[in-house]
Simulated scan of single mutants.
Amino acid sequence: MTTATLHPTAGARPLADLLTMLRRNLLRAVRYPALTSFTVVIPVLLLLLFVFVFGGAIGAGVTPGAAPGAEGRAAYLDYITPAILLFAVVGAAQSVAITAAMDAHSGIMARFRTMAISPGSVLGGPVLGTVVQGLVAVAVVLTVAVALGFRPGAGVPGWLALVGLVALVTFATTWLCVAMGLAAPSVETASNTPMLLTALPFLSSGLVPVATMPAPVRAFAEHQPFTPVVETTRALLAGTTPDGATALLAVGWCVAVAAVGYAWSRTLYRRERR
């Protein structure tokens, strides 16, 4: 029995292993374009649907003084774009749940445990790769929104803060989705379980103000992770200073979700599959 088998981490180079796994994840994204394009196509379709079908009416309601029709659509485009960006983030995170389940059930992850590979890189590589994909998806969706008439007012500090926030949200949701993928009894289940995350942007301030919601729904919307993230993103895109408490809450939620997802993923990775 080799030393690597007895001590899988012997000789492991954490940074080099992490970069190798990151490269593997990015190559997989290129080789499975259908899975990758899902993170962009769905948010773009949602943007077009909400703006051009519902925007003329809803926009007049969310923005005081906006008239129904073209003016309402323009107002709703400004309002809804931050939420659509988060749909792109969630879509990117969902894809890693599927790939994590594929690795777990194909046996490649069990093989990794017997090799001289840094354990953290096996999970960390896909997470970082998904963060890259999430940022690219957000950039594409934002470009489409600008083409439709969205005009962000962010300056350089605002854009830097926005990139950091999007990366942090993607990082947090990806760790959670990795755990969901490893815990799933099949690859098919792994593709469905993270769908629960897509409901959260709908039940936030992303599509309509929480003040318009019934009391129980409003209470949930005000105390779930995506509402402070949406509000902070909206302020950054508008070029205004985000509310300090709201921004801190958004970061706090991200840190908490990332910690839970990381701990859950590491536990599942170390567990021997029967």
Score class of each variant (00 low, 15 high):
N25D: 14
A100P: 09
V217D: 09
L22G: 09
L168I: 08
A221I: 00
E222I: 05
A172N: 14
A74G: 15
A83Q: 08
H105Y: 00
P214G: 03
L19K: 05
L27N: 14
L6A: 04
P14R: 06
L47G: 02
G206V: 01
T232W: 06
M1H: 07
S118C: 01
G107H: 06
A110S: 11
G134H: 13
R271N: 00
T233S: 08
P157M: 10
L268I: 08
V141F: 09
M21K: 09
A101R: 12
T114V: 06
L48C: 01
L45W: 03
A258K: 05
F50L: 11
G252I: 03
V144Y: 08
L35I: 15
T39R: 14
L165G: 10
M102W: 12
I117E: 02
S204T: 14
T5N: 07
A16W: 04
A211Q: 15
G120Y: 06
L48D: 02
R234A: 07
F50T: 14
M180H: 12
G120P: 04
F54P: 01
I58F: 04
G69C: 00
W175S: 05
A97W: 09
S118N: 05
S95G: 14
H105T: 00
F38L: 12
A190Q: 14
P209K: 08
H105K: 01
P82M: 07
A258E: 05
L77D: 07
T9G: 08
L27D: 09
V156C: 05
G181V: 06
V187C: 11
A184C: 03
G252Q: 01
P216D: 00
A93M: 07
P201N: 01
G244E: 04
V156G: 03
L203P: 03
G65D: 06
V210H: 07
T193A: 11
A250D: 01
A67I: 06
V257F: 11
A97K: 10
P201F: 02
V132R: 15
A93K: 11
S118V: 05
V144H: 03
V146C: 13
T20H: 15
V30I: 14
A221L: 01
L18K: 08
T227D: 05
A221E: 00
T63E: 02
A258S: 08
P126W: 01
L47I: 07
P214N: 04
G244P: 03
W175Y: 10
L236I: 04
F38C: 09
G261C: 13
V146D: 08
R234T: 08
G125W: 14
P82N: 08
L168M: 09
V255P: 03
V138T: 06
V169P: 12
P68R: 12
L35V: 15
A100Y: 12
V163A: 14
S37I: 09
S265N: 06
A88K: 09
C254L: 07
H105W: 02
H223V: 02
V260T: 10
R113D: 01
P8G: 00
P33D: 04
T9Q: 10
S106L: 10
A167W: 13
T39H: 10
A190F: 13
T246G: 07
